[in-house]
Design a protein around this nucleic acid. Structure first.
Lengths: 344, 344
DNA sequence: GTGAAAGCGCTAACAC
DNA sequence: GTGTTAGCGCTTTCAC
């Protein structure tokens, strides 16, 4: 019943040729006559011959597969990056194996092993947020399997086949604040999450530096450490509006809290952006749905995936005998100015 | 330089044992002495031995890998389903290879071939919307590779190793309309996209039948064929509000248009849900962010992915000698009543 | 232009 | 308990 697949040996027997000739014909090798190629191709077609990639990969020592390890495939960011990875990988002729660490260091380790056992040719990783030690990547480095970290990277992990792609959060924040200043805002508040997370730390620093660069004073009471949810944003905004001198703008470290801020401003009968301009971060899908539409920062998720694959490809092509690994790439985020911050 | 990986043969030589013993020891086979197992394991550890899955898979004729083919990994729905698939597959010990058809029938075909060549043990597919013919699935059926369609299924494609998972759109719509009627609404409008798409057709039918079942008249002027975007929803709602007898509720076939409707109602100085109750479909992330929060229908995306994998597993375990394939599974959607439709 | 032969790394049937 | 042997399906030298 289970119609065994036709193999090269089968084709060979049927045509009275040797397996090697069949193999060569199928891969369009120069030194097979056109006539033979034609016969082979036709029979392959008829029998629905499907080359066994496993066998080919084993023989060649190349699996043609890339491994991807992400914390999860939910929310806004990772699906988009994965989409970018899958698309670029397909373009370059790679298959993609995807694993999730579920933000768990142990699963991350197991998945790294799994990917290596599956003989992937390269690995793309975004770290689980519980990962503290990096022994499991040591093995990857030792085997000289090209490794690209994206977004959540190990800063001090280098090697001849290791690279990284990140987004410049600092720069994104800096752009936001500069933009707000250009719109005439002078008391710019900042919503941030815990600063031990890089994304918040860098955005926070960009905020401070942009203020300083434009000669604006830093008012600590405008910096709100809040839960970065809609509710958190609403609460933080309510507090700010009670200040004797209330802010005329908010830069929120994510979009959710920014939306909360807009809602709080509106329910205080103030106007966005006239009384308070608001800018978020990440360019989530729903930024287009609010009234007014929320200005935000595009993190170029797909580009990140694409770039990560390209880095991998570069390492694969040049082999380990090279002047160091490709430099880490830092993507420039794009400020998207929408209604919530456009005052003139 | 490229530290070749240790192989079973290497372990065998080092320990003065035969490869088969090593293999058995590593897979914890009963008839290897504990002493030997211990020695083998220790050496394996030391040398960072990683079994070559490719070779094992080739030999066993089982790759331990499932293939997933989706139109794309963007938006709300597919990432969630893929997440469900990946999670369940990992739980059952499968790797997952993911491809995107980009809504293109030709790429779909190529990817199916690719997955088969990669010797996946089963395939999960959601059809590209351009797919008209199904020859490429014929090959899968012939090879007896278990195949599960999810969400976008081929209705009349059956086989001993083919099954499907869908969501009951009709039922979801029916629930929505029943709920609105229970809230006291009597003139319930419906926003729908083109009816040649199954999702819209079924939701539309659910709408009609629910009205009829509760003895409410069907008013064709309340059925709006509109673009299912925020803007489309706004425009459709504006038109409806101009009617002599305006509707007191809207059931939109998706969330985006529902949000548009809410905005139109609000800017007409009417209130949601008091004057017009609104319910969407799909339970997108942003339904929680609107004011009032949007009632919607949860499509149970993750559950769909999980169920699809379980169906595959069932076919794999029982083999082809069975009384027909597992029955297609139709998931019951869940109505989530939020503020936008709660009138009492 | 084609064939013979070896072997990728692993497993499993069969010996002892 | 352990070893011997063969082979999964393919590619690739080396021969002719």
């Amino acid at each position: 019943m289970a119609n065994r697949r036709a193999s090269i040996t089968d084709l060979a027997k049927t045509l009275g040729l040797s397996p090697s000739t069949i193999s060569r014909a199928l891969s369009d090798h120069d030194d097979v006559s056109e006539a033979t190629k034609a016969r082979v191709r036709q029979l392959a077609e008829e029998l629905h011959y499907q080359p066994n990639q496993l066998a080919a990969a084993l023989r060649r020592g190349r699996s043609n597969t890339l491994g991807v390890l992400v914390p999860h495939i939910t929310g806004h960011f990772f699906p988009q990056v994965v989409h970018g990875i899958a698309t670029e990988a397909a373009k370059l002729g790679f298959n993609v194996m995807i694993c999730q660490s579920n933000e768990d260091a142990r699963q991350e380790q197991k998945n790294i092993d799994l990917l290596m056992n599956s003989q992937v040719e390269g690995i793309l990783v975004s770290l689980a947020n519980t990962t503290q030690s990096f022994g499991h990547f040591e093995a990857v480095r030792q085997q000289n399997i090209p490794l690209v970290f994206f977004d959540r990277v190990v800063e001090d992990f280098s090697g001849s086949n290791v690279s990284a792609v990140m987004i410049d959060d600092y720069q994104g924040a800096y752009q936001v604040v500069t933009h707000l200043i250009e719109q005439g805002c002078t008391r710019i508040a900042h919503f941030t999450g815990p600063l031990h997370l890089n994304i918040h730390k860098n955005r926070h620093q960009g905020y401070r530096d942009a203020l300083a660069a434009h000669g604006l004073p830093l008012d600590e009471e405008l910096i709100m450490f809040c839960e970065m949810s809609q509710k958190g944003g609403t609460q933080a905004m309510r507090q700010l509006l009670k200040l004797p001198r209330r802010p005329d703008a908010v830069f929120s470290s994510n979009d959710l809290a920014a939306i909360g801020a807009i809602q709080a401003v509106k329910s205080a009968r103030l106007r966005v952006p006239k009384d308070v301009a608001v800018v978020g971060f990440s360019n989530e899908m729903f930024t287009m749905l609010t009234e007014p539409m929320l200005s935000s920062v595009d993190q170029r998720c797909e580009q990140m995936g694409k770039t990560a694959v390209q880095l991998l490809q570069k390492m694969l092509k040049s082999g380990p005998n090279r002047q160091g690994p490709p430099k880490p790439i830092v993507l420039k985020p794009r400020l998207l100015v929408r209604e919530s911050s456009q005052r003139r």
